[in-house]
Design a protein around this nucleic acid. Structure first.
Lengths: 219, 219, 219, 219
DNA sequence: CATGAATGAGCATTCATTCAT
DNA sequence: GATGAATGAATGCTCATTCAT
């Protein structure tokens, strides 16, 4: 941050890997910094400092800060649609699918938390073109989830009065909040979280939930 | 951007009310701008533009951008602890309390969405002192919610194996995601959302949820 | 230029005039610096130094370096078309009009040499929109000049074989070169230059130039 | 701009000729780019792009951008003095010499327009040493031209009241404007331009120009 | 109350240049 | 011959903030 106080090149730490890898390291650093400070709150200087290189050197790897954000976001959404599709098209009851989906949704948070966090919180700051691109992927993902719920309703496995849209948003909201506290919260590993989230929600989706648990006045 | 080329003050909209009110208008504008652009993405210029005054004039009302954020955040948390306490100390079953809590949690999103949104997303950007202050309030709030759950477990109304900490985080995550889509999502009014969220979650909390809905291998 | 060696604020020289005047002073400085160093060769820092203010302060007066160039160029073309039109529509022989035109063309070089110089040499660096605007004015000017020549040909005052287009370009080229040496060249005042240029060219335009002065083989 | 996203070398166009030739190609590219964008407006990257090589590779051929400019400028002045000397020392009337000089002055604009253009417009950006060198050549050239005019005056072929200095500057200004529009202006080939310029100016130089063409009030 | 003018600090980005390979 | 990687220095520009009026 400070320019004058910065130690003049700590270590000329150069990754001994392939150029591909080096490029990935740069984006990794960007992801971490964006995740911590937010896109606008992070300076390219901050990123360079993490890497132990000069700020100008970053521009050898990406053309602009915006493009760095784009790359981070792209790696942040990566795989979500695919694994959701796999779940949706797999076998098992709708309830099992929801459980599986929660699990596969939470997995990337462990593997590449920074990317996912940035995608979730900073995607709105993307330039128009790429924002629309990742926006489309998000909507596609939501549609798959909602599809599982709607299928469950049609087969009678889920409540007929379920508002599938709201349930989808609730489910995703719940899951997407995880990066905010995962790693801080002790005893919260993914398996445990996924199980608990499943428990919490699957009953509420299910038909045959004990009537009377909720006052349904004149509905 | 341009200083001279920008149209000089669209409307000299000056509130004819009391100085108190004017001050509130300024913070309202800040809240709206912070909510839309993020704290770091918003400039004091943006705020001034919304108000139709000059950027320098803002400093008559607040001492710094950070303090403006602080005020917005304070109005963003305001009331949460109080209404949660009211719910917790009120009568009714734990399930009813959770439903009531969800409702009272969502209410401010309608009444002062921008403030809440900023509190939720930008509170981390606060300077240390005030961040700790609102942090304490958040944790107090969480403890009240968690208390309701724990009470429900103790009375046998909720599942004995409920992870109250995770359930709290899940519940709040679900609710706190609402500002992100409320207003965009058609047909999603607070009553409806609150009811659906309650339905979704209360069953999963409850004891007597049909065993077998989840494979509990060797548990 | 150098940032570290710059003396920290020589004199907080603030013009005591009106805001209008101050703004004009800024553009004047820009004109001088652009004229000397070229648009791309001049830094906003250079301009600020001339004014004895900080570089950032410039942006209170203009929105971008490009816009500063635009304003300089606009003041650079200013009046040319008008005075050429006045000459064209005035009374007198075509030869007299050419002499008058040369004179009125050279006048601004004395009055606002820097602006004209910048217009002549840097207009190509303008952003598209404004480049086209000043481009249109240039072409209009050329057409007026060429019109005088063509009229002279039609009335028989000028040679029937005169290539009016080339003559126009020659005339303007000759005149537009003046800023490059005016002020350096001793004994070259505008009156003198205008008279000499007129002498040089009017005879060549005129019909009745002694035949045989040029070998016209087989034409 | 982007380094990684830019298409990696369009065509690895490598001259199969001698190293001498390759070096000439590099300077040719520099000339073209400097001519189009100006010295300061052109980046070494721009030059590399024209050649289809990497920016760093340029430094195999020239030691610095300034030196590239120097080489371009040197090729830009090349031959002017020699051919002017040939004209001056040749046979024929002064008028014929002026016509010949115009012609030989315009010729290089066709053959190596970019170089000449850069010399004319960017020579001021040269570092001191080389600027003085080409400056000396320019002045030598001017002196030769002026010499022809003065000789013409002495022999009585040209007007006795001719201001040879101003006439020289006028003549060269006229000619040096050509690169700015040559190639854009239809029907303007060198022969034609040279003839027209000669016609335009030779009469004005000549003694015996009809008195009275210009009002010489009290002279 | 509000503003015009100005500024210090910082920021993303560009650029000429270097150098080991 | 040419390049990939990196860098120091600068550049245009933004921004929060100050202060006299």
């Amino acid at each position: 941050m400070a320019t004058l106080t910065r130690s003049r090149r700590t270590v000329p730490r150069r990754s001994s890997g392939s150029p591909r890898r080096r490029s990935a390291e740069i984006i990794e650093a960007a992801a971490r910094v964006f995740a911590e400070r937010g896109y606008h709150g992070a300076s390219t200087q901050d990123i360079a400092e993490v890497l132990g290189i000069r700020q100008a050197s970053l521009y050898y790897y990406f053309a602009s800060k915006e493009i760095a954000l784009e790359q981070v976001c792209l790696r942040g959404v990566e795989g979500f649609v695919e694994s959701a599709e796999a779940v949706a098209q797999g076998r098992g009851s709708a309830a099992e699918k929801i459980r599986a989906l929660i699990h596969s949704h939470l997995q990337p948070i462990v593997d590449r938390g920074a990317y996912v966090k940035v995608f979730l919180r900073e995607r709105h700051r993307l330039p128009d073109a790429s924002r629309r691109k990742v926006g489309r992927m998000s909507r596609r993902y939501e549609r798959i989830v909602q599809g599982i719920l709607e299928h469950g309703v049609r087969t009678g496995e889920f409540r007929p009065d379920l508002d599938c849209r709201l349930a989808t948003l609730a489910l995703l909201g719940m899951c997407n909040a995880v990066p905010a506290w995962y790693g801080i919260e002790p005893r919260a590993d993914i398996e445990r979280i996924a199980r608990e989230f499943g428990d919490l929600v699957v009953e509420g989706l299910s038909a045959g939930a004990r009537a009377g648990a909720r006052p349904r006045p004149g509905r």
